[in-house]
């Protein structure tokens, strides 16, 4: 048995240019990153390119990765989503959006909620929660998160007023919170 190193220890090892550490980080988060990219792009080979790019950037830039400013998991997933949406919009010849990586996306301490949800076997809990959202809310949420659309674009795509989209996004997260809490998950920080 090998001792599992923490994410922080793996980053430190990456900074010592240890390829093994990259492999361990990939084993830990590569599947999540790939699945997320695949969901956004709907295409395996593009998803591979995104994941390769994201992990290789981490390898190249590990020296400047400052773990005190955020978790590597959150950074890898946020980057995978952002790069995927970049790809998607370029392929769809949409105006490229200034999808900024916001520090709060991965500086936030979301570990508690993450580990509670992740501990539920096979991630089924969250999928079930989303499946219980009213269709219009789930659709708005997915178009925003996985489709990379702005609220105005969602309004266009679904042919409803902008104000309705705002309400749907807000209600979708609220409902998701209630559904998780009804399963005994604590969502308050």
């Amino acid at each position: 048995m090998t001792n599992e190193r923490t994410d922080q220890e793996l980053i430190a090892a990456l900074q010592r240019q240890e390829v093994q550490a990259l492999e361990e980080l990939y084993d830990r988060f590569g599947g999540l990153a790939y699945s997320l990219a695949f969901k956004v792009l709907g295409d395996g080979s593009l998803a591979e390119d995104v994941v390769q790019e994201v992990f290789f950037n981490l390898w190249r830039q590990a020296q400047s990765f400052d773990g005190s400013r955020g978790s590597v998991r959150a950074w890898l997933l946020a980057s995978s989503r952002h790069r995927s949406i970049d790809f998607l919009r370029r392929r769809q010849a949409k105006a490229e959006r200034d999808v900024e990586l916001s520090a709060s996306e991965f500086r936030l301490n979301t570990d508690d909620l993450w580990s509670q949800v992740a501990n539920h076997l096979d991630h089924g809990l969250l999928r079930q929660a989303l499946a219980q959202l009213p269709e219009s809310q789930r659709q708005a949420l997915e178009l925003a998160y996985f489709g990379g659309l702005t609220q105005a674009e969602i309004a266009d795509a679904t042919d409803v007023p902008l104000g309705t989209v705002k309400g749907r996004l807000r209600l979708a997260l609220e409902k998701m919170k209630d559904l998780l809490e009804s399963q005994g998950i604590r969502t308050a920080g």
């Binding site: 599947g31 790939y34 936030l108 909620l113 992740a118 991630h123 997260l173 969502t187 920080g189």
Partner: peptide
């Protein structure tokens, strides 16, 4: 902050797929 924490777990809602082995090979 609470809404961001909820958004941060959305990757866990995605159907999990195993990336092809060549991706890891290529990366390393």
């Amino acid at each position: 902050a609470q809404e961001q924490a909820l958004v941060a777990v959305l990757p866990l809602a995605v159907e999990q797929r195993a990336p092809p082995a060549r991706l890891k090979t290529r990366l390393l």
